[in-house]
Design a binder for these strands. Sequence first.
DNA 1: GTAAATTATTTAGTTAGGTAAATAAGGAGT
DNA 2: ACTCCTTATTTACCTAACTAAATAATTTAC
Lengths: 132, 132
Amino acid sequence: MNPLFHILFQQNRYLVKQLNDVLKQHGLFSSQWTVLFLLHQNGPMTLTAIWKYLDVEAPTVTRTVTRLETLGWVERVQGADKREKMIDLTTKAMEQFPYIEESVVSFERKLTENLSEEEQALLIQLLKKMEG
Amino acid sequence: MNPLFHILFQQNRYLVKQLNDVLKQHGLFSSQWTVLFLLHQNGPMTLTAIWKYLDVEAPTVTRTVTRLETLGWVERVQGADKREKMIDLTTKAMEQFPYIEESVVSFERKLTENLSEEEQALLIQLLKKMEG
DNA sequence: GTAAATTATTTAGTTAGGTAAATAAGGAGT
DNA sequence: ACTCCTTATTTACCTAACTAAATAATTTAC
């Protein structure tokens, strides 16, 4: 048994847990933040565009967006095609975004401070090489 | 925003998904396999020993063990201390284990074949360096 | 020796991922 | 124009992680 997988899964759990802890003060969870970040970067997106970009399944995004909607972070707007719905950030989300981003960036910096730029690039490269 | 986290989370999802697909033929899910593997390596363990080793919370292991029990892979046996229960592999689990392990090892080999021994060691080392 | 603290496990409820299948709208072929 | 296929989203239900709190047994303190 290759210890690599065990460590990777464990480190992933640890990082998500830490990130959730940071986001708690903003009333958010990690996956909700991921969607907010994407919408802030790209502007309004359809649900399909979101799940294809994030490489998760559609029902996962449906649930996260629904939760974000009831919490007042995003709104669903009818798209040109009547089947699709554009997901858009609310004013609250636009206003709060910089503060949340600052927390996240600070968190990321703390966790990567033991790694040089080269090591980070190498880590990304090695992770990407692990494909079937 | 550091792309490292995005890639790490995405790669983690991908790997779990692939592993679940391999384990499907044996009627198992990834976390169930993790517990079976640990018990096979260590012999009977208490629930506390399992969650401390795997670094997950106790309720997570309770649920996985309960599922494994109803599926006939493990059994709970009263421990010396009446509070604790020893979790032990059933005969079915001992018999099936080699075949499942072979599937998993083959899966791991396929996913790491693009990485040399040195690269794997380096990847592990870099992952471990990412701590708060 | 009993009250209080600790330890082991479980229960209840949340987010987050997955699959399978339903629904609704759009497009294509004839 | 109607049938058939595809696309966008949702619903229902599973595993898997988490926290908070309940229960039961054991230790510790006095």
